[in-house]
Design a protein around this nucleic acid. Structure first.
Length: 483
RNA sequence: CGGAGCGUAGCUCAGCUUGGUUAGAGCACUUGGUUUGGGACCAAGACGUCGCAGGUUCAAAUCCUGUCGCUCCGACCA
């Protein structure tokens, strides 16, 4: 029989049956983003952008607190700039968008649409830096960049994306390295404290590091399908870009020196991390600290008479909870049941229901997004409401981090043999001794499609033997399939 | 860029094999009414250059060629 029920527009596939579809449809239906009429490009819709703005604020606050300032550099970069750093151009040339015509005329020199701004900022720094007294220079910019990717996915990899890129120059190697690590720490704390996304900070392997960097550092998060997502990166560039762009200064002893530079970025890809770390089969789950809407109030009233009793309470709540990002869903054309599902899909951390029964008892009903169904419902008295709600949101935030951490740790394995290694990276991560050789790394990738995610900063004591070749190894690395 | 699949109403799709009146359904949308504590119901209505461009034909959503886009799988990557 073909008596299948029509699928409501709000329903999304479960994560189990098709993780990719779950991800794509969730983004569209929750109105975070939509496809643009250009291949591989997306429109970040107001709900998605509100989330990004909260991410921006949380990061920007931390950057400013550590002495960084914001500025804006051009979108266009002379092609020759890219070519000045050998590794850099090698890494980026396949994915450049190049402008060859301007104002109807063929350009003297093609302009690339920035894939990242090390080169043009390096050029400017060389003009600005003359003396050790000009250092350090600590600039960040919030902007969009373009990389011509082959295979795109919303938020995770689009031709154009939004990010911040910090670029700093220092007089000593140690200071530049300190900066690189300071930012990695900011990213780590932002991810854990604000987004409730547990991440592992570590160093990238030689093959995985940024084109032109001496060393790259990353925060790696585990998504709901156990794949890894590089969620933010901080690079120690050594003197590579200083040499390419003549960022030189006279030190205290009147000697000409090359500066030491860093760069670091976190992009709208992080929205993908939030979606895939916390989302469940009902939809998004937003961490309270970043949620565009922290609380939604659903009034329940059948008749005008009930409305007259309920709505004043709703208004009272709106005022009492003014410190939160709050929305009152007063739509009359949909039922409360519909609204519950709708806001759950959009991931609002806390829902408040106010109906005649609540008004009568002088309480409100609250439902936690992190605990679906009856388990997350309770009633609250009206006194001291704001502190009660703040407490609940904190609890949700903490619970989300705990849940994600438990999930992650349950999928990190310490395989005994290479055979076991090959098995565990099918559905999780392996933390294994690695001799550091390119051969073993390449073999792993070929055998399993898992890549070296990072060499975690936190290393076990002692030494061991490489999981592949059994040679002595002094560092452990995370290996996983990655986005 | 290689392999596969898909483009018909806002969404999910039927129709295409075997060309033939005015291209359909469910959901969503609009209006009216009844509803509303976990995805309401009844009635009426509006919504289409069948992705785009060529070609074959008396006639193309349907057949052919090209092209663009999306999804999935590889190679590459924040």
């Amino acid at each position: 029989m073909t008596d299948q029920k029509p699928i409501s527009q709000e329903k999304i596939p479960s994560r189990g049956e098709n993780y990719s579809e779950w991800y794509n449809q969730l983004i569209l239906k929750s109105e975070l983003a939509d496809y643009a009429p250009v291949r591989g490009c997306m429109v970040v819709r107001p709900y998605g952008w509100a989330l990004w703005e909260n991410i921006q604020q949380a990061l920007d606050r931390r950057f400013k607190a550590t002495g960084h300032v914001n500025a804006a550099f051009p979108l266009f970069i002379p092609l020759s700039f890219l070519e000045k750093e050998k590794e850099h151009v090698k890494g980026f040339s396949p994915e450049l968008a190049v402008v060859t015509i301007g104002g109807g005329e063929k350009l003297e020199e093609p302009l690339v649409v920035r894939p990242t701004s090390e080169t043009i900022i390096g050029y400017m720094y060389s003009k600005w830096v003359k003396s050790y007294r000009d250092l350090p220079i600590l600039i960040n910019q919030w902007c969009n960049v373009v990389r011509w990717e082959m295979r795109t996915r919303m938020f995770l990899r689009t031709l154009e994306f939004y990010w911040q890129e910090g670029h700093t120059a220092h007089s000593t190697s140690a200071e530049a390295m300190e900066e690189t690590r300071r930012i990695l720490d900011i990213y780590t704390r932002f991810a854990t404290d604000e987004a409730a996304v547990p991440v592992i900070p570590g160093r990238k392997s030689e093959t995985e590091k940024f084109a032109g960097a001496v060393s790259s550092f990353t925060i790696e998060g585990m998504m709901g399908d156990t794949k890894a997502l590089q969620s933010g990166t901080s690079h120690f560039l050594g003197q590579n870009f200083a040499k390419a762009f003549n960022i030189q200064f006279l030190n205290e002893s009147n000697q000409l020196q090359n500066a030491w530079t860093t760069s670091w970025g976190l992009s709208t890809r992080f929205i993908g991390a939030i979606i895939m770390t916390h989302g469940d089969d009902q939809g998004l789950v937003m961490p309270p600290r970043l949620a565009p809407i922290q609380i939604v109030i659903v009034p329940i009233a059948r008749s005008d008479e009930e409305k007259a009793r309920v709505m004043p309470v709703v208004e009272q709540l709106r005022q009492a909870l003014a410190e939160f990002r709050l929305k009152v869903d007063d739509r009359t054309e949909v039922t409360p049941g519909f609204k519950f599902n709708d806001w759950e899909m959009r991931g609002v951390p806390l829902r408040i229901e106010v109906g005649p029964k609540d008004v009568e008892k002088n309480v409100i009903t609250v439902a936690r997004r992190d605990m679906p169904g009856k388990a997350g419902k309770s009633t609250l008295g009206m006194d001291q409401l704001a502190p009660q709600i703040a407490g609940l949101l904190n609890e949700i935030q903490a619970n989300m981090l705990a849940k994600a951490t438990t999930f992650r740790d349950a999928h990190i394995h310490d395989p005994r043999s290479y055979d076991e290694f090959k098995q565990v990276v099918e559905n999780g991560w392996a933390l294994s001794w690695w001799c550091g050789s390119l051969e073993c790394e390449a073999k792993i990738k070929e055998d399993t499609r898992a890549t070296t995610r990072c060499l975690p900063l936190e290393q076990p004591a002692g030494a061991g033997h490489c999981i592949v070749c059994n040679q002595p190894a002094h560092e452990k690395a995370y290996f996983a399939k990655a986005y």
